[in-house]
């Protein structure tokens, strides 16, 4: 019996070591961009904050108004005025402001808009977290969609998402999760996401992620105070608007963050100031699944452990039963 205890402790210690090394044998390869990944490029420097995208999103996704933002200077609020993304708001324009807030796209004494919605991660934490496959990533276009018929409402996706995107209807007796699904119902009909279609300046453009990243890289090469023909609605659109170029942050948000996202952003203000988290390149989903996989790979370890337990308990419980 003493031998057995020692063996058991060995197993425990071994498991601990396995975790300790951080380079387990079953480490999962990072996921790559789906072949026809669709996405959105948002350029905060040319966003005018008109919220056309926000209202188009409401209209084409049949979302109700939301009156959660109540700044003190507005005593009487009725119109759609959400404070953040919610189960009623899948797309929102927020504003960053510092100091006097005089100049657009400046970190100090400036302001900037930021458009927030689902990032459609290449390796989404919500999909990895969901126990019932209610959230799924389309293997072809990479859209992360939600199936309410599968969902049990555990809200683990909300815990998991680094961007706090999935939203839950806490005010309903039969609630569901709500999130941007990149207007997949419109894409099916050959249309594009409503937010991009209705953006008047080309701040949000729709297209293949590879094209969008190319376009983003092109914009980072531009010199401030020159002019550039910004495509409107889609990245390949022939309708372009000649607009002055502002100074960009030398960073394409979403190219690498959390394993990469299909919603990528450019801005004149550092992204963490705009409320976007600073994330490592390895996704949380990857790290979590690696540990989960190491322990439960093919259920080998649990089954072996169970076999040992069965042997021990059978032997030890027998004398007990006789005594009892």
């Amino acid at each position: 019996m003493d031998i057995k205890r020692r063996d058991f402790l060995k197993v425990v210690a071994g498991g601990g070591l396995l975790l300790a090394t951080g380079e387990p044998a079953f480490a999962r390869a990072p996921k790559t961009l789906p072949p026809n990944a669709l996405g959105i490029l948002y350029d905060a420097t040319i966003c005018i904050g008109c919220k056309a995208c926000q209202s188009a999103c409401k209209q084409y996704n049949n979302m109700p108004p939301d009156h959660t933002y109540r700044p003190p200077e507005l005593t009487d609020q009725i119109w759609d005025n959400p404070v953040d993304l919610s189960a009623k708001t899948l797309n929102i324009i927020k504003a960053y402001k510092s100091g006097t807030g005089a100049t657009k796209n400046r970190e100090v004494d400036g302001f900037s808009f930021i458009k927030r919605h689902c990032m459609h991660c290449i390796d989404p934490a919500c999909v990895s977290a969901c126990p019932v496959s209610a959230l799924q990533k389309n293997p072809d276009n990479g859209i992360v969609s939600y199936n309410k018929n599968a969902c049990i409402g555990c809200r683990y996706c909300q815990i998991a998402c680094p961007f706090n995107i999935p939203k839950f209807e806490f005010d309903k007796p039969f609630p569901q999760i709500r999130k941007c699904q990149l207007c997949s119902h419109r894409i099916e009909k050959g249309e594009i996401s409503a937010c991009c279609e209705f953006c008047p300046t080309g701040a949000s453009i729709f297209g293949k992620v590879t094209d969008l990243i190319e376009e983003a890289k092109r914009r980072l090469q531009l010199k401030p105070c020159t002019y550039y023909k910004y495509p409107v609605s889609t990245v390949t659109s022939s309708y372009k608007l000649l607009q002055p170029v502002d100074k960009y942050q030398e960073h394409i948000y979403g190219e690498k963050e959390g394993g990469g996202t299909q919603y990528i952003l450019l801005a004149g203000v550092p992204f963490d100031k705009l409320g976007l988290p600073v994330l490592p390149e390895l996704s949380d989903a990857n790290r979590s699944e690696t540990i989960q996989h190491t322990i439960y790979y093919g259920l080998i370890a649990p089954v072996m452990f169970l076999a040992g337990l069965l042997y021990a308990v059978h032997r030890n419980a027998k004398n007990e039963d006789d005594n009892n």
């Binding site: 209202s55 324009i93 930021i114 100031k273």
Partner: peptide, 13 residues
Amino acid sequence: FITPPANFPGIAE
């Protein structure tokens, strides 16, 4: 229809 108001929520309300 839902159309926009004239004010914006901040980053961290």
